[in-house]
């Protein structure tokens, strides 16, 4: 299977990036994970022409081609960082590659809670009509105290967390399989979401 992992921040130092790098290495025999950065992508500004800037289009194509997407999000002010949200806005506003895409959410934070509030928001966001991703339900992987979590080789030092992550990832592999079977018969709704518009929705259309 081929996944992409999106680093949910533009910071040069990020434990969420480290988490994805660890996953890439640790699960290399079971899936290929390509890590995608969002640093330097333009800020969303809702242009009239609805054309994605180049970097966004590149990312969009990668999401489109992947069997599934892993998003690692930090938590800023109890929510998802602006740079990640901006990318999701672009994708929802232009090519909408997330529709029906299996997604696993993970997150690392310095404090004890491990970005739980940001993950909650991210689920709601990914459920919006123009994103409509298939987010793996119930499982959430939260890595608290992330500054102390990795050794110099980039390995996760908390053993129980490694086990938990392995279980989550197993589930995600199954979830991707099941989802892809499920959505085979879903092309009508998917098409609806591709064409969704808030203008029409407000008129009671769009169903």
């Amino acid at each position: 299977m081929k996944f992409i992992g999106i680093v949910g921040t533009n910071a040069t130092k990020s434990t969420n990036r480290q988490l994805l790098q660890f996953m890439q290495k640790h699960f290399s025999s079971r899936a290929e994970i390509e890590i995608c950065e969002i640093k330097g992508l333009p800020a969303f500004n809702q242009p009239e022409d609805r054309v994605a800037p180049e970097g966004i289009q590149v990312l969009s194509d990668k999401v489109e081609a992947a069997d599934g997407v892993i998003i690692a999000t930090p938590e800023y002010d109890h929510t998802v960082p602006a740079p990640l949200k901006s990318v999701l806005e672009w994708l929802s506003y232009t090519s909408r590659p997330f529709i029906d895409k299996p997604v696993m959410i993970v997150g690392a934070s310095y404090g004890a809670l491990g970005s739980s509030r940001a993950q909650g928001h991210l689920r709601q966001i990914l459920d919006a009509p123009e994103l409509k991703a298939r987010v793996m339900p119930s499982e959430e992987f939260l890595l608290g105290h992330s500054l102390q979590a990795f050794d110099d080789n980039g390995d996760l030092v908390y053993e129980d967390k490694v086990t938990e992550l392995e279980e989550c990832f197993d589930q995600f592999l199954q979830f991707v399989d099941i989802t892809n079977q499920l959505i085979k018969n879903h092309s009508f709704q998917a098409e609806q979401n591709k064409n969704f518009s808030w203008e029409k929705a407000s008129e009671g259309g769009n169903n």
């Binding site: 800020a43 002010d77 602006a82 806005e89 966001i125 994103l131």
Partner: peptide
């Protein structure tokens, strides 16, 4: 409301202000 949340531009200024 953008994607069930606030626009990233608003997040961004609040992040600078925090």
């Amino acid at each position: 409301e953008h994607n069930h949340s606030v626009p990233s531009a608003l997040n961004s200024i609040l992040e600078w202000m925090s």
